[in-house]
C-alpha cells in the first residue's frame, strides 16, 4: 500500500493525521519522515506498535497499583522513546511528564497522568491505523 493515494500532500502524508484545534496526535514533519522511511513496511510498523504498546500500558497500570516507582519510571521512559519514534510527540511528552511525577508526584497525580496517556494512545493508534489503511 502507499500513502500517496490518501492525500495531495507533497510528502505523501495523509490529511487525517493532522487534527484541527487540539495538539496533533502525530508530529507532521516527523510522521512524514517515518512514513517515507518505512515505505512498504509502514503497515508492519503500525501493527507492531498497536500490539506492543497496550501491553506496556497494562504494565504501567499494574506498576502504579503496586506503587513500584522503579518499574513505573522504566516503562514511562520506554514509552516516551517508542512514542517519539512513532512521531507521536504529544504522547511522548505525556510520558516524559509521567517520569517527572514518578520522581516527585502523588499517586493520584500518577494515576491521573496514566489516564491521560491512555487517552492519548487511543488517538495515536487511530491516526496510525488510518494512515496505514
Amino acid at each position: 500500500m502507499s500513502g500517496r493515494e490518501h492525500g495531495a500532500h507533497r510528502t505523501g502524508v495523509p490529511k487525517t493525521v493532522v487534527q484541527d484545534g487540539a495538539m496533533p496526535a502525530l508530529d507532521e514533519e516527523l510522521f512524514a519522515e517515518l512514513f517515507s522511511l518505512m515505505g512498504e513496511n509502514f503497515g508492519g510498523f503500525v501493527s507492531v506498535f498497536i500490539k506492543d504498546t497496550p501491553v506496556r500500558l497494562a504494565a504501567l497500570r499494574a506498576a502504579a497499583a503496586n506503587h513500584d516507582r522503579e518499574q513505573l519510571n522504566q516503562l514511562a521512559h520506554m514509552l516516551k522513546g517508542s512514542a517519539a519514534n512513532a512521531s507521536a510527540m504529544t504522547l511522548s511528552s505525556r510520558c516524559a511528564r509521567l517520569e517527572t511525577l514518578v520522581r516527585d508526584g502523588s499517586p493520584e497525580q500518577i494515576d491521573e497522568q496514566i489516564a491521560c496517556i491512555e487517552a492519548e494512545y487511543q488517538r495515536v493508534a487511530a491516526a496510525l491505523v488510518e494512515a496505514a489503511r
Binding site: N41, F45, M78, G81, S82, N85
Partner: peptide, 16 residues
C-alpha cells in the same frame, strides 16, 4: 533494543 518498533525504525534507516 527491547522495543520492536525502535528496532524496525533503526533497521529501516540502516538498510536504506
Amino acid at each position: 533494543d527491547d522495543e520492536r518498533t525502535n528496532l524496525l525504525v533503526l533497521r529501516a534507516i540502516l538498510e536504506h
